[in-house]
Design a protein around this nucleic acid. Structure first.
Lengths: 329, 329
DNA sequence: CCTCAATGTGGAACCGGTTACACATATAAA
DNA sequence: TTTATATGTGTAACCGGTTCCACATTGAGG
């Protein structure tokens, strides 16, 4: 690999000059620039980012920490982040945390050790020391932290909408699936739904779940219908469990949406391809990723930020696991 | 951030000594080691990986290049790679190529510039200069290249199995969906299926598709039934299009598997949650990822490799979009 | 008691960039 | 003509680690 000194020698100038043309800083005579550029081309030179990063104490890398990329919601998020970062010449060191604080810590440490300029993290503990002590800008994604940069969708509102729509469509024996306790957005959704249901005096049951994994989703679906065989409406904690519930319901011979309505959460890509296609509370995952990336870049580049925490809207995405609401008027 | 010199001063030794205890190289007196370790702890010192990487010309980073993490097959792959790497103290710089040679080049360049020790890539052009000239070990994942390290599943065999099983289950008007031309594994599957169908003299049609995206999958499904309304068996190029075909078939009122059988490819997590659940040719994605990571690590660590290219088996995963085959005997 | 190998430690060069500073030259203003 | 300023370039220190080499010191073997 050619170094800047090779280029300098080849072009008959000093390394400082080469560095200047590389970075377009300081004065460089037009003729000199040409010579240097030729040398760079001839030697196929590309600057060593590591050396650069060492001196500047800043790389062009950012750290991305997500719970589990195997959950189809997160690839969308990741893709949004990546596309925006790519366009701005930042690259990504990526890790899955499995919602596990130790793994998180390990990754955050790696990020620091590699001089990343910023971090985007979906963590359940934004207030932990790990983040408080971090001297690198962080944007929390799909999570909130008071007054720290974050991009998220309004889970509580989503839960409320789900409950409202479920009631409006006539379900009266609703089951709410409470997502994993330690996952904040899951709890928000749950709370939102429960609030509305209580307020409206609609009876409901709760099924607790402890993960979002595909393998376990089926188990909870079974559990649901064993414990509450007569539910006529399920508000699921995300589209994965909603899919499992739908699957189990059909297996049991229930008619969806006639006997049973289901509302999911997230709107993962497959939701619209299910049969019946899944009614869900959509989160604009890709946009969230892009927005978070954009926010982080602005922070890194020291632009002044008008808005630290950005909330993106959730939208009720009506498909076929809910009945049509009667037109009034 | 504390540096090695801070630690040295604090412990009353030279930086060389600190480095020795850090790396467990050379001779260090037990008492000295203790002093240094205390200093490290007291200053919360962690070595700067960038400085290390600069001198050694090797980091603890590896580059992972996948086509599109939004396709549910790849997160499994990625997860396998990550888990194995994590356990061996390697971290990942990640990028999506969108099967686009320019993006690939860009990422490979970033990888080099950041001194990654190895690369895992799903590329359709393993023989391009980009990879030929790369002086960093590469393992091709989900792709083959003669005699270069690679981990993949036997797509051709998968295609054959699909065709055989389809025939064995009585479909006689088979439609094979030919995946994107530029994606090698897709073509292998296609070829495998076509070979068997031709050989057995079973008539079939072909639908060409040009991507694996969710949004377009629906379009091809529609196209399929417009052009070949009487097909009684679809061999899809992957589970995404298979899902779309299933969706469209049900929408058209077809009975699956009675009127129409469908076989997918990959076995993405959602396949088993569809109704009817999807019969598919399973690729052990997670294992493929782990295996590729393991292979790369062995190459990096210069262990001698008995087997350069590792082929993992595909398995016919019988579910509900195919009929039971009659028991003979 | 002497010699040599094993043990223990520090100084300084090095990795490949960036940049502060010194120094020269050309040009414009006084 | 003198002086201030803009333009152009090079030398060397620096970023924070690792490692080569030189230089003790210690202990075993002869």
């Amino acid at each position: 690999m050619a170094t800047i000194r090779d280029v300098a020698k080849h072009a008959g100038v000093s390394v400082a000059t080469v560095s200047r043309v590389l970075n377009e800083t300081g004065y460089v005579h037009e003729d000199t620039r040409k010579k240097v550029e030729t040398a760079i081309r001839e030697l196929h030179y590309t600057p060593n980012e590591v050396a650069r990063s060492l001196y500047k104490r800043k790389s062009r890398l950012i750290g991305l920490l997500l719970p589990d990329i195997t959950n189809p919601f997160f690839p969308e998020l990741a893709r949004g982040v990546e596309d925006e970062m790519q366009e701005n010449d930042f690259r990504i060191i990526f890790g899955n945390s499995d919602e596990n604080m130790n793994k998180e810590k390990e990754y955050i440490q790696t990020f620091e050790q590699n001089n990343v300029v910023g971090v985007i993290a979906s963590t359940n503990h934004p207030d932990s020391d790990t983040y408080r002590k971090l001297r690198i800008p962080v944007v929390f994604l799909d999570r909130t932290a008071d007054n720290r940069p974050s991009v998220y969708a309004d889970g509580r509102e989503g839960g409320k909408i789900a409950a409202h729509e479920m009631i409006a469509r006539g379900s009266r024996q609703i089951t709410v699936m409470q997502g994993p306790k330690h996952i904040r957005p899951a709890q928000d959704r749950y709370q939102g739904a429960v609030d509305v249901l209580s307020e409206q005096g609609v009876p409901f049951n709760v099924i607790m779940t402890s993960s979002f994994s595909f393998t376990e989703a089926g188990i909870w679906a079974k559990e649901l219908f064993e414990q509450h065989p007569y539910t006529d409406g399920v508000i699921a904690s995300n589209d994965i469990v909603a899919t499992a519930v739908l699957h189990e319901a059909l297996r049991l011979g229930k008619k969806v949406p006639e006997d049973l309505q289901i509302i999911g959460f997230d709107d993962i890509p497959l939701s619209s391809l299910l049969t019946p296609s899944l009614t869900t509370i959509r989160q604009p995952a890709y946009d969230m990723g892009r927005t978070a990336a954009r926010l982080l870049i602005r922070i890194i580049e020291n632009e002044n930020i008008d808005q630290n925490t950005i909330q993106l809207p959730v939208t009720f995405t009506e498909r076929e696991t809910t009945r049509k609401v009667e037109q009034h008027g």
